[in-house]
Design a protein around this nucleic acid. Structure first.
Length: 218
DNA sequence: AGGACGATTAACT
DNA sequence: GTTAATCGTCCTG
């Protein structure tokens, strides 16, 4: 049996990757629009793991006191300040990796944290990497990084290059009515107004599954 | 040089 | 609802 979720056949060969212009916009816009896009991990050795993005958060710049950019440019967050369309991957809590998509113009520190996926290709590999029920395999920012083997080696990589190990494909266009908007989560000791800014965007995996089925002409 | 803490997760009461 | 795990990063002094 192929390690692919049966109903989810919408990823088409030869479809163009999201181009840099998609990322080179305000982080909040990218966070909204990236829902339904397909994140693809192409590992050295040929295996391919992918999933549709179900949740994302925007971190807008050094003035955003929830952002790692709040202390200015450091070795750790350097990728945030670079060209849009690159990855910013960081390590936290002594054990977890997190993936961001770098947004905005070069020199501005915008980024979008990818917080949830609906798995498509590589489900067997994902199951091997984390023993959980299927619905809980990639429903968190650290969990999806483990599923796709995203770690420090991805930090700073260009998502738009033709040889990229990680990139995005256009997936499903989501109408506003299926997108839930709210404050970002997991922020400790972050003052207002940043704590309450509605910069978290979500679509339920069930709803996205239905839309993917429809799109693929099932 | 030392210490607080984190864009989380899983396990627990 | 609470808490431990676990260590790199950034702060203070």
């Amino acid at each position: 049996m192929p390690s692919r979720t049966p109903i989810l056949q919408a990823g088409r060969v030869g479809r163009p990757r999201l181009k840099r212009a998609f990322y080179a916009r305000p982080a909040v816009d990218v966070a909204r629009d990236v829902l339904g896009a397909k994140l693809v991990r192409s590992e050295p050795g040929g295996s391919r793991i992918s999933g549709w993005i179900t949740e994302a958060e925007a971190y807008v710049g050094p003035e955003d006191l929830a952002s790692h950019a709040r202390h200015g440019r450091t070795d750790r967050n350097a990728a945030m300040w670079g060209q849009a369309g690159h990855a910013y991957v960081f390590f936290t809590y002594g054990m977890h990796w997190m993936l961001n998509l770098v947004t905005e113009a070069e020199g501005q520190a915008g980024a979008v944290l990818v917080r949830g996926l609906l798995p498509d290709e590589g489900l067997e590999t994902i199951r091997r990497r984390r023993k959980r029920p299927d619905r809980q395999l990639t429903d968190g920012p650290a969990k999806l990084c483990q599923a796709l083997a995203i770690d420090r080696t991805i930090d700073g990589q260009d998502l738009c290059g033709s040889n990229a190990e990680l990139y995005l494909l256009p997936g499903v266009q989501l109408p506003d009515r299926v997108v839930t908007i709210g404050p970002r989560v997991g922020l400790n000791k972050v003052p207002e107004p940043w704590l309450s800014r509605p910069w978290r965007f979500r679509v339920s995996p069930d709803v996205l599954t239905d839309l993917v089925e429809k799109e693929s002409g099932a």
